[in-house]
């Protein structure tokens, strides 16, 4: 293995963690949007806020990490993706800013109309941001981003069947993860009605996500044949694993084994996340540009790896501590604003 390969893997780990943690934060926003009228939706909103509050900023840094590793380690790929897909990426960036700001503002505001306004912005941008990030993934995976500055079609690269599939799946996966995490959180906080509610939602989300993913196979067959053949050959074990784990998560939800559900869902999503690069390896921007052609000089990739390693020694234990503190933080269902 050369250092570019390792860096690619590290970057993909970062992206996976972002999907699993940041994705669930977006999903929390999706459920916030669907929580119904202000009064009846209050307990759900408070649980969502309780689960996201202390960690969303740390979760969000994973995205920055991925961006920085991409531009440092694979500058050509970064420049090509950003310049061709600048429309959905600008929209995703705006979604990120609206979401973070609105979340913080909602917490700091006291009046109902303010909380509604900021809450609405928070929830809506929680749907739009993963959607646009998903269209970006779809554009790359369906070989619509050639190397070069704005060398691809700035509209068709993200308004196409695979991108739309990617966008919808991204939102669904976020919602699925969030419902499962929130169900577990609610069960641990001994609020059974809330837990039941999120369990129902998780079941629905799992079923819908599975259905869309199945239908998506047909879309890929027709719109992104290379990706399709990669997913049905080299990456097939991962795809099957993901499907099995997805079904397992439904069964476990049925049996109310909340912690196990969490594990199954996380692994199911991680398996899909890794299916994509395995399917198209060694291409980074399919069809032609390989990761090796896109990679920076070896001295750069090794230096970044060393820095990331030192960083991991500092960051990972702190992160574990934060999550432990958060898990032990009591959720007080009655505390009012």
């Amino acid at each position: 293995m050369d250092s570019a390969q390792i860096l690619l893997a590290v970057m993909w780990v970062g992206l996976t963690v972002y999907a699993l943690l940041g994705g669930a934060d977006f999903g929390g926003g999706v459920w916030d949007l669907l929580a119904g009228r202000s009064r009846s939706g209050m307990p759900q909103r408070r649980l969502i806020e309780h689960s996201i509050g202390p960690v969303w900023e740390a979760n969000h840094v994973w995205l920055i990490f991925v961006l920085v590793v991409l531009w440092t380690g694979f500058p050509l790929a970064f420049a090509s993706v950003m310049s061709t897909l600048y429309i959905p990426l600008t929209l995703a960036a705006l979604g990120i800013i609206a979401r973070g700001a609105a979340f913080a503002f909602r917490k700091a505001s006291t009046e109902l109309w303010q909380q509604r306004l900021f809450g609405g912005a928070f929830a809506l941008s929680s749907v739009l941001t993963p959607f646009f990030l998903g269209t970006v993934a779809g554009g790359i995976a369906s070989a619509r981003v050639p190397p070069g500055l704005a060398a691809g079609d700035v509209v068709g690269s993200w308004l196409n069947p695979t991108s739309l599939l990617g966008g919808v799946l991204a939102v669904l996966v976020c919602a699925y993860l969030a419902a499962i995490y929130l169900c577990d959180d609610a069960a641990r906080s001994r609020t059974p009605e809330l837990a039941e509610g999120f369990r129902r939602r998780a079941l629905v989300a799992a079923a819908v996500t599975g259905a869309v993913a199945l239908g998506g196979i047909a879309v890929l067959h027709w719109d992104a044949p290379r990706l399709f053949s990669g997913l049905t050959h080299r990456a097939l074990p991962l795809v099957v694993l993901s499907a099995v784990l997805g079904i397992a998560s439904i069964v476990l939800l049925w049996l109310r084994r909340h912690l196990l559900v969490r594990a199954a869902a996380v692994l199911a999503v991680a398996a899909v996340m890794w299916g994509w690069p395995v399917a198209q390896y060694p291409a980074m921007l399919p069809p032609a540009l390989t990761y090796r052609e896109a990679a920076a000089a070896p001295v750069v990739t090794t230096t970044v790896l060393v820095v990331a390693g030192v960083g991991a020694l500092l960051v990972l234990p702190s992160l574990v501590w934060l999550f432990l503190l958060q898990r032990r933080m009591p959720y007080d269902a009655d505390a009012s604003h």
Binding site: A58, V61, I64, F65, V68, V69, W71, T72, G73, P75, L76, F78, A79, S80, M82, L149, A296, A297, V300, T303, V304, V307, A308, V310, G311, L314, V315, S318, L319
Partner: peptide, 21 residues
């Protein structure tokens, strides 16, 4: 970024770690 991303990436990578902390 396409040309010089690899040259100035390192300080940004270190900044990313500082952001995590």
């Amino acid at each position: 970024m396409g040309v010089y991303g690899e040259v100035i990436g390192l300080p940004f990578a270190m900044e990313g770690i500082a952001f995590f902390i």
